[in-house]
């Protein structure tokens, strides 16, 4: 058999195995009802947020173009009532989902990147590198994340990018800890010793053995982190660190408090953003837990 043919066959075999594994993972995931429900709701919310410009152009958010009365209770025309500027709360809610979700995902991406790289390095290397990295991880683990995020974002100045950085930089330590312990577990396995004995270097061990073993864990952790990042975003926005001109769920709640909607009994402006956060975060958590139990069957039923 010629070399290219062998190569082709090999790739097919690997791809088939991956496909088969993906189907298995999906089956296991789908058998977790809570996780599946969470996923369906999330897909729906994300689709809604992505497609909203088709139904409600950004102009509905323009305070100068409102036609409805201010703080109008829910009606047929405005199913969730209007805000203190007379805008539809429903439109605000769906438009707000865009920023909340984007910030949640972006901050998680930053957090996962730092966490995975630092965690793997702290697990793989020994000596001074490890000692220094461990100290840094420990520091970011114990330091109050929200307070540090407040400090960072108040110094850099309010804005969406600021919030992403502030959340990302303060939330990676947990992931790093997890990744490090997984790296240590993997590296204590004899197959790593076998790889060394076969003549492998750091690069081979990390990319071929450690990374594939760490990735599923990171993925499940990502889903869980998106949830907490969305809460962190709303908290920072609520404290006034968000971009005042953009609409997110946290910003809506802040304006509800600032304009007296909260104390004035305009519950339709206070409830929807909060409930939206709870539902979305809960869904991310359920999906994350379901993924975790697929990866680690011993976690079933947790």
């Amino acid at each position: 058999m010629s070399a290219p043919a062998a190569q082709g066959k090999r790739i097919n075999v690997a791809a088939a195995r991956r496909r088969q594994r993906a189907v298995e993972v999906w089956k296991e995931f789908a058998s977790n009802r809570a996780g599946l429900t969470g996923l369906i709701i999330l897909v729906f919310v994300i689709a809604l947020a992505a497609l909203i410009p088709l139904f409600a152009p950004p102009s509905v958010l323009d305070v100068t173009q409102v036609t409805s009365p201010q703080n109008d209770p829910p009606s047929l025309e405005n199913p969730l009532g209007t805000d203190p500027a007379g805008r539809s709360v429903l439109a605000l809610l769906i438009w707000g989902a865009r920023i909340s979700l984007v910030v949640g995902f972006a901050a998680t991406l930053v957090s996962m990147l730092i966490g995975t790289v630092v965690g793997m390095a702290a697990g793989h290397f020994t000596g001074a590198t490890q000692a220094v990295l461990m100290r840094i991880i420990d520091f970011f683990l114990v330091v109050p994340g929200l307070v540090l995020a407040i400090v960072l974002s108040s110094v850099i100045g309010p804005g969406v990018a600021t919030i992403v950085v502030a959340i990302g930089v303060t939330s990676w330590a947990g992931t790093a800890r997890l990744v490090r312990s997984q790296t240590l577990t993997v590296e204590s396995r004899p197959y790593i010793e076998r790889a060394w004995a076969l003549g492998a270097g750091d690069g081979h061990v990390i990319t071929k053995h450690v990374l594939p073993a760490v990735m599923p864990l990171v993925l499940a952790n990502t889903t869980l982190t998106v949830g907490s990042a969305i809460i962190a975003e709303s908290t920072l926005s609520f404290l006034g660190l968000g971009d005042p001109s953009s609409i997110s769920w946290g910003a809506m709640l802040k304006s509800a408090l600032d304009t007296g909607a909260a104390t004035g009994g305009y519950w339709w402006y206070v409830m929807p953003p909060g409930l939206a956060i709870v539902v979305v975060v809960l869904c991310f958590t359920l999906v994350g837990r379901a993924l975790e139990s697929v990866i680690n069957p011993t976690l079933r039923g947790r």
Binding site: A262, W267, V270, L282
Partner: peptide, 16 residues
């Protein structure tokens, strides 16, 4: 569910 609730929002609700 409680884990998914933003602290400040829960506070606001209780306050109201």
């Amino acid at each position: 569910v409680f884990w998914s609730v933003p602290t400040f929002w829960l506070g606001l609700l209780l306050l109201l």
